[in-house]
Design a protein around this nucleic acid. Structure first.
Lengths: 136, 136
DNA sequence: TTTCCTGCAAAAGCTTTGCAAGTAC
DNA sequence: GTACTTGCAAAGCTTTTGCAGGAAA
């Protein structure tokens, strides 16, 4: 298990107090927080961390592949779990993970051959499949 | 094939010039436009339609199930095609449909039983499965 | 010592809202 | 006639940016 500093080194991200705090807060959180929520959470332990830094840092993390940005109405949400997994959005705006045992079954069912055909037909390279279940 | 007025009646939406124009513009468009883009397109034929009305109307359409809202960075996009189909987002921000022949194969592969298990485990009712392919 | 990061405040999007006038039913 | 819709402008969000000082490598 890499510690946070090593993780940053591996991705050539400078290791600052704010980044460590932010990453560990996000990683410890199962709730897919918004930037605003993360800012509040981090502010408790690390007063003075600015919201601009939270946004900049989350972008750096996302670009580096250390977290995932999930677009949703009312502000993007972030997830430090970058493994393939599914999300559920409820009508009242909650966002949660699909339990991995069930999610994996769905992901494994997606035929590789079909994805290959999409790539060929559209002339693109599919890097990631995102699945969102919506409640009514 | 229902005409636009009948479609609105079926969904108890009042039939106004702006709504008809907007719906037909969106339906004729394969490009998943933003509210801003739709506003520009509509403004050519129907000068004076306000951006606020575009937003309000798109929300009414979405609530009624006449179109779908796709959250993405840089503003939501709208799609009058409400049938089950997949989207691709490229890194440069383009959003397009996966060709239906291939998309259907992927959707059909999703095991009903797994979705049932998600519902049971999370105590929710899954109304819609949204699949987004991302390029790297 | 160089380069990048941070905080602050201001600006820049995107989206919603209040209200008066207008329109569908 | 009643209830809903529209346009306008203003306000409310979320997110980005410029810049000066500070910290990492």
């Amino acid at each position: 298990m890499l510690d946070t500093r090593e993780l940053f080194e591996k991705h050539t991200l400078r290791c600052t107090r704010q980044r460590v705090e932010l990453y560990e807060t996000l990683a410890a959180c199962k709730c897919h927080p918004t930037a605003e929520q993360l800012h509040r959470m981090v502010a408790e332990r690390s007063p003075g961390t600015s919201l601009a830094t939270v946004y900049n840092t989350l972008e750096a993390f996302t670009d580096a592949g250390l977290c995932r940005k999930i677009n949703s109405s009312g502000g993007a949400r972030y997830d430090a779990d970058v493994s393939d997994h599914l999300h559920v959005v409820t009508t009242d705006g909650r966002l949660m993970d699909v339990p991995p045992e069930v999610g994996d079954e769905i992901l494994r069912a997606i035929p590789r051959a079909a994805l290959d055909r999409v790539q060929e037909r559209l002339g693109i390279k599919v890097a990631h499949v995102e699945v969102l279940l919506r409640t009514s």
